[in-house]
Nucleic acid binder design. Structure first.
Lengths: 138, 138
DNA sequence: ATGTAGATTATAATGATTCTAAACTAGTGT
DNA sequence: ACACTAGTTTAGAATCATTATAATCTACAT
């Protein structure tokens, strides 16, 4: 038997019912060592082809968005064609390989602290996101 | 008579025929002091409501994309809902006011030079884009 | 066991973008 | 001035991703 108790708890605490589908999605997204970057379409493909589980597209959309709202996922728009979700919700930046369209996490100390000198009256900084586009050298 | 000779030249040099529609779009986009940030939909609205010119949506899409390809415009994706084009094609960063969804240019010296310590073999850095999300501070 | 609010689902609806193919036009040569 | 051609514009159709709908199902409190 697979042990879902962590995910059941995680969902319950956040006010989401631990349904079969949500647990499947949790296992896929969060039961891994490395950060996972995905689009909803890729997620759907994985369930269909690799895992042979049929979770409707609507549920994937609903779930990913509610996970985002609960802070389990972060959304990253890299360009107009593609939007990724990131299982690493800590403050961090990204490489985007423009040849493969792959996102790669940058660790905190891979990037010097960013200082913004301009301030706008009545506004405060909410987040700072750095996207470093990389390409094949040669 | 309005003097379009600069735009006619600009288009011709880049290999685009200076058509009525393209010149109208040039005037709207480039005949201004401050940087202009827009979505294609907003552009369509301006032509329809403010300028009473009917340029088909297809042409706006075509033109904006060819202007982007020629380097007259830069595209900035700020979130999954919205993608902006920027008439300022120099290297610079942005504020995004999440309350109004407004983009604001940061000047070069508003942000310290970003140093990326990580390098990936066979890859080189193409660009570094910083998006600073700001919100009402109250 | 029952009731009910919350979830899932297939499908339809929407909305943004791209495609198509016909009509139009800028620029060239005559 | 005229005609030719490749490039451009256009309305409308097609496509694709995402969201809405409403019927069915399920977790879970009572």
């Amino acid at each position: 038997m697979d042990d879902n108790s962590i995910f059941i708890e995680k969902l319950r605490v956040s006010g989401l019912r631990p349904t079969k589908q949500r647990l499947e999605i949790c296992k896929l997204l969060f039961d891994r060592k490395k950060t996972f970057h995905f689009s909803i379409n890729e997620l759907a493909e994985i369930f269909k082809k690799e895992r042979k589980k049929k979770i409707s597209l609507a549920t994937l959309y609903n779930t990913v968005h509610s996970f985002k709202k609960k802070g389990f996922l972060k959304e990253i728009s890299v360009n107009s064609e593609k939007s990724y979700f990131d299982t690493n919700t800590s403050n961090h930046h990204h490489f985007l390989d423009v040849n493969t369209n792959e996102l790669i996490d940058l660790k905190k100390d891979d990037v010097d602290k960013i200082r913004i000198k301009k301030i706008l009256p009545g506004k405060k900084i909410k987040s700072i996101e750095v996207l470093v586009k990389i390409e094949n050298s040669n």
